[in-house]
Design a binder for these strands. Structure first.
Lengths: 135, 135
DNA sequence: GTCGTTGCAAAGCGTTTGCAGCCTA
DNA sequence: TAGGCTGCAAACGCTTTGCAACGAC
């Protein structure tokens, strides 16, 4: 039987509020503001059980610790900004994924991670270029 | 200045021979057979410097330690078998990747990981079903 | 001989686990 | 009150680092 606890509530609330995948440490920092004395182990334990009940999913990133997001009902992928390291949701999916598959292989899932520059960082960059030009 | 060493040679040879991405521990086990007394730290150090010189690349997998492969000249993706955990190269790429991108975002790289059952495991499964049927 | 490289062991770092006490139902 | 959940600290597994010795050039 699963009990409602302040800690678990806070963790869920933090994830919901963020609206983007968070690292365990980020969740810990934010949730600790609501529940003082919170332990990092509790964050991991809650994430694990939330994952088992399908309420959250982990997003694995190259060379980084996984981040966690509330499980949406929609299939989606992610975009990682190479500049600010922020992770975005992409609500689209290539049509021709299955065509990549060698013969005899069966496809069950697929992960796609796009990387580049997000709109916020792209704007900053072009602003800086404008600033630099007069020199 | 970079020196040639038995350890470094063995590591490169192991990667070349494997022809698929290997985990550091796998590389260590195989290279140790050629160079006894080899330390795991040396494997990590070599992989790191090989990566810096662009000779090898790391393949990041969800929830697993990265695996390493010799850097090919061809852009490719990977297929991870959910049954035998073996990682395959996919020499194809979706055409419409750029269409996924939100406006204002710029794409620099993309990773795709397909998962399912490889041809070897799919065959084993169908054999077992045949075996089971007579019962 | 120089100094890049190595093996070993210790240290790091993120994550998990053991345990006694707490708190929800 | 029962037993799931918690905080703490220790343990973990993988990776990195410090250091003295080794060996390629």
């Amino acid at each position: 039987m699963i009990r409602t606890t302040h800690q678990g509530d806070a963790i869920r609330r933090v994830l919901k509020k963020a609206g983007r995948p968070l690292a365990p440490q980020e969740i810990f920092d934010a949730a600790q503001r609501e529940v003082s004395g919170l332990g990092i182990a509790t964050v991991y334990r809650n994430l694990k059980s939330l994952q088992q009940e399908g309420a959250v999913t982990s997003v694995e990133l190259p060379g980084q610790a996984p981040r966690w997001e509330l499980a949406g009902d929609r299939h989606h992928h992610h975009f990682l900004c190479n500049t600010c390291d922020k992770l975005y949701e992409i609500n689209a999916c290539p049509e021709d994924i299955k065509n990549l598959l060698p013969k005899g292989f069966t496809l069950e899932e697929h992960d796609i991670l796009l990387r580049g520059q997000c709109i916020a960082c792209a704007r900053k960059d072009s602003l800086q270029e404008v600033k630099k030009q007069p020199k």
